[in-house]
């Protein structure tokens, strides 16, 4: 890796760690000057760019997040019954632009049902959902076509909003790259691994540039690197002012969200 590549990687790593743009630029300029004066391999001088960026990020901290914007999703008093079985009772959630909400709870407590109700895909017994802006939804599984190419999925989703084929393909590939996936190949979806198929699933949900993004455990099958990329991408989308609701059972990531809705029967209700 030459100095230019090392600096490019450093800039990307700083961006991923949400170091403020001005500070990141300053760090990259300083590193470039240092490397030029030293003249040796950047790995020998400053070490791996990821580790260097992590040290910088730790010392100066991430950029302050913008304040949450107006309410984008307001779900109030959601009750859903299947026959005599009440799946959801009086669940409520309010998410503003620039916030990530996690929906957690035990298996079968209605997390996916809640999300599908918010997306308007399932009817409810009582309650109301108000969404301001465009909705995007990523199902837990399915939602892709086995015999289509990833590019064709992007074209299909893009056509829904009147986007021409070329721009839709480019937008899809760019969004896929954020998850560390090069989507331009001619491999049918049925031949993709489970994790890559989920990347396609997730990419499709962000393609229509939604204001409210509903994600139902979209990281199943992700390797560790992609999983980290996924949360980084959510942080970027949040910083762009999206309101995000993600169903999860992995409680170790709750420090990366702004709101938690716990649907477990004993503790139904919202806590911030």
């Amino acid at each position: 890796m030459n100095a230019d590549e090392w600096l490019r990687t450093l800039a990307a790593e700083l961006h991923q760690r949400r170091v403020a743009a001005d500070a990141a630029r300053h760090v990259v300029v300083e590193a470039a000057t240092h490397l030029r004066e030293d003249g040796r391999d950047p790995w020998l001088v400053l070490g791996p760019p990821g580790e260097y960026a992590a040290a910088i990020s730790e010392s100066i901290g991430p950029a302050p997040r913008p304040r949450p914007g107006p309410v984008r999703l307001h779900a109030q008093g959601i009750t859903k019954r299947y026959g005599r079985h009440t799946v959801l009772r009086d669940a409520s959630l309010t998410v503003r632009a620039g916030q990530i909400a996690a929906v957690v709870g035990a298996n079968g407590c209605g997390k996916s049902t809640f999300l599908r109700i918010c997306a308007g895909l399932v009817s409810l017994d009582t309650g109301q959902v108000t969404v301001t802006g465009r909705l995007g939804y990523c199902p837990q599984q399915g939602g892709t076509a086995d015999f289509l190419l990833p590019d064709e999925h992007f074209v299909l989703v893009g056509a829904g909003r009147g986007v021409a084929r070329g721009p839709a393909r480019r937008a899809g590939r760019t969004a896929a790259r954020q998850l560390g996936w090069e989507a331009g190949g001619d491999v049918l979806t049925r031949h993709l691994s489970g994790g890559t198929r989920q990347k396609l699933n997730l990419t499709m949900s962000t393609l229509s540039e939604p204001d409210v993004l509903l994600l139902d455990e979209p990281y199943q099958g992700f390797d560790h690197g992609t999983y980290v990329n996924f949360w980084d991408q959510l942080a970027r989308l949040r910083d762009q002012g999206k309101a995000i609701v993600v169903v999860t059972h992995l409680l170790n990531q709750l420090d990366r969200v702004d709101l938690v809705l716990d649907l477990t029967a004993a503790t139904r209700g919202e806590r911030a």
């Binding site: 997306a119 308007g120 895909l121 909705l135 995007g136 939804y137 990523c138 199902p139 599984q141 399915g142 939602g143 892709t144 076509a145 086995d146 299909l156 989703v157 829904g160 909003r161 009147g162 499709m204 949900s205 393609l207 229509s208």
Partner: peptide
Amino acid sequence: GAARELEPRLRLAGY
């Protein structure tokens, strides 16, 4: 049958 899971999300995508 194959389109059953895909159609709801296409609906949200503007169809």
